[in-house]
């Protein structure tokens, strides 16, 4: 007697998604919906910056020095052409924010991905293999943890620049930032993944997999990894916010993205010089954009942690 005839056809992907617990918990919380919409808007704004931005802040030829330091349009002396005002070179702040969040988000995602891949692999390896492999990896992590991440990012940033001095700074800034921010964040992933792996590897389902002679790498990837990813997702979203802030900090300190292609941090740095002379909008609007972006991403991360854990359902 077969059950094939009784089997229902599986519903489509979208039908299943709208029927899922994740979608349900999403629709239950107004804060999360607001955070998701804000994040989505900033992501879309960043993605389609060239299409929706009123000006191209990177195009030096289109800048008018006469329009520099224009206040926002609702202030006295404001110009509706520049809704949020302009900076000292006449760049439209709104356009600069759209283009700037594009760079900030790109650096954030790339460095989180780099840190996560590095940290998860090393953490899995350390936790599952144990012994000498574990000791070496975790001692390196311990040493790195004694330095603040900003310091590590500054150190790597500086040494990469001096080693590859000949490289065009505008071209290399992005990769140097991703590399240095990523390298300063991997320890957190490695430690979390290692401790979860230590718990999981003694569970009987891992023994059952070892029993049938699966390769350790395969057990790590297909059995242990899915069970240690829960905390990683939370760290990754919080780290996305942190990476964006670190990038902003580095750019603010002047070692990040150069001011010819400003990120949010670079914009805040430029604005900082004019803060006390009354031109508050140059720093305030990029700062607000940064804060809103980081807050929304963090809220989403917390919610995802709860929604994706099958044991909490």
């Amino acid at each position: 007697m077969t059950m094939d005839s009784e089997r229902l056809k599986p519903p489509g992907l979208w039908a299943r998604f709208f029927d899922s617990d994740i979608w349900y918990s999403f629709t239950r919380s107004k804060v999360i919906m607001a955070a998701a919409i804000v994040t989505l808007l900033i992501f879309l704004g960043a993605l389609f910056a060239p299409l929706i931005a009123p000006h191209d802040p990177f195009d030096m030829a289109s800048l008018y020095l006469m329009d520099s330091l224009t206040p926002p349009m609702w202030e006295a002396g404001g110009n509706p052409v520049y809704p949020l005002g302009t900076d000292d070179q006449g760049r439209d702040i709104l356009s600069a924010i759209l283009y700037g969040s594009r760079i900030s988000l790109a650096v954030g995602f790339a460095s989180v991905a780099f840190a996560a891949i590095l940290g998860i692999s090393l953490g899995l390896l350390a936790g599952y293999m144990g012994g000498r492999v574990d000791s070496i990896i975790m001692r390196i992590a311990d040493v790195q943890l004694t330095f603040p991440s900003i310091l590590i990012a500054l150190l790597i940033d500086g040494s990469v620049r001096s080693i590859f001095g000949g490289i065009d700074r505008e071209q290399s800034a992005f990769y140097v930032l991703v590399f240095s921010i990523g390298l300063s964040f991997w320890v957190q992933y490695a430690r979390t993944v290692r401790s979860s792996t230590l718990v999981e590897k003694d569970k009987e389902y891992v023994q059952a997999a070892r029993l049938i002679g699966l390769h350790p790498l395969r057990i790590m990837a297909s059995h242990v990894l899915p069970n240690v990813m829960g905390p990683v997702l939370v760290i990754a979203t919080i780290n996305l916010a942190l990476a964006i802030i670190t990038e902003a900090t580095l750019s603010f300190l002047g070692v990040g993205i150069p001011s010819t292609q400003p990120s949010l941090g670079t914009l805040i740095r430029i604005g900082n010089d004019f803060l006390f002379s009354g031109e508050w909008w140059i720093a305030a609007f990029p700062g607000a954009a940064l804060a809103i972006l980081v807050l929304a991403v963090n809220l989403l991360g917390d919610w995802l942690r709860d929604a994706l854990n099958p044991r909490l359902r």
């Binding site: 389902y205 023994q207 049938i212 002679g213 899915p226 044991r311």
Partner: peptide, 30 residues
């Protein structure tokens, strides 16, 4: 490999012996 396929084990704790992230059919099929 050939020898391993001839013996198997049933574990004590059925709450730890099945991978919580896998569907039952994948667990049995492995």
């Amino acid at each position: 490999r050939q020898l391993r396929s001839r013996f198997q084990m049933i574990f004590q704790d059925p709450f730890a012996s099945l991978n919580p992230r896998w569907r039952v059919k994948d667990i049995i099929a492995e």
